[in-house]
Simulated scan of single mutants.
Amino acid sequence: MPEPTPRTVTGVAPGRVNLIGEHVDYNGGRCLPFALRQTTCARVARRDDGRLVVASGEDRWEGRATDLEEDLDGAPGWVRYVAGVLLALEVSDGLEVVISSDVPIGAGLSSSAALECSVAVAVDALLGLGRTSDELERASVRAESETVGAPTGGLDQAISVHGEEAHALLLDFGTGRREQVRFDPAAHGLGVLVIDTRVSHELTDGGYGQRRDEAWEAARLLGVPTLAEATQGMVYREGLPETLARRAWHVVSEVQRVDAFVDALRADDWAALGPLLDASHTSLRDGYEVSCEELDVAVETAREAGALGARMTGGGFGGSAIALVPLERLGAVRTAVTHAFVARGWASPDFIEADPGPGARVG
């Protein structure tokens, strides 16, 4: 006998940490993220009344599944992430979607992609759509860019879908190549400490989009399809306006750092990783200008307290920093960063000791 059609499916998808390769996905470059253990769960159930109901905690929204785009006018932003996935998958069935998550919101750890991808895998399984993981990833990207209106290069959705235990995912947005790279810091006596500054991070506030547009303009002036294809010599030689030259320099040098980071991992040269993280933060702070005082203090203090290296991660303008720390120094780094924040009158940061986990799946 055929299996009965399910009435409820739960999808699970992780947030992410980008180890290195920031603001290069939409510039055709290479990035190295890994999936967090922190996840978003989307419990999706069938409804027979043609309605879409989305709930999270005490918040609830309801609209017509068959006229979703029209009903989204004035809907809360978090609902648009869910609805965008359904629109991208061309689903108009009546559904109830209940969301729960332990991925920090606004921390630059891609809570949005975790939400999109958890909904995508649940809806696919519930309705028997038969979409591939790559198709679910693309639907999640479309949800964020088209329905939410947040510019995204696709890094976040890629790692949320394709994460693997004890691995980071090398993503080449120029060639489309993807490769799982072994990343198991605990086996080498190290930990990745995520420092959530609690400075809210939003991709829809304009700063991210402005940097993207500046980078694309720099590529146009340099005569290359993407900035990742430019060289350091071109950036120096072609007389770009100062701001665009700084943006271009960051992208070109950041792609080189990603390659060096991956080479060091393959050679088990973990001592080489710290300086690369440090250089990435300096470039993001001074060249791309997407850091903030809280991120800079977190990074500097973590280094002083014993981290091998540290940098901001994510789109910037707030959010989180990461530090590669010997396991025996994790407590000292947490204490030092907390004291530095409190001494400046800021709220205490939050911390996650992160290690790579699996990607999106049915829970």
Rank of each mutant, 00 (worst) to 15 (best):
S133G: 03
V85Y: 08
E146I: 11
S56Y: 02
D59M: 10
E90M: 00
T147D: 03
E58I: 01
V161M: 15
D156N: 08
S56V: 10
S56W: 10
G74N: 14
E164C: 07
E116M: 08
V161Q: 11
L109D: 00
T132I: 09
A75D: 08
R142W: 10
S111N: 05
R51L: 12
R46W: 08
G74C: 15
A122E: 08
G153C: 09
A166T: 12
I99E: 05
E146P: 01
A55W: 05
L127C: 06
A139R: 12
L68G: 03
L89Q: 05
R131V: 10
A168W: 07
S100L: 03
D156A: 09
V98N: 00
D67K: 12
R80C: 14
L72Q: 01
S118T: 05
G63D: 04
G149L: 15
A55P: 06
C117F: 15
V54T: 10
D48Y: 11
L86M: 04
S118P: 01
A107C: 08
G163Y: 09
V91I: 15
L109C: 01
L72H: 01
W61Y: 01
A65W: 08
P104C: 02
E116A: 13
S56K: 06
Y81L: 09
D134M: 09
S140A: 14
E146F: 11
V119D: 07
T152I: 08
R138G: 05
L115V: 15
S101A: 13
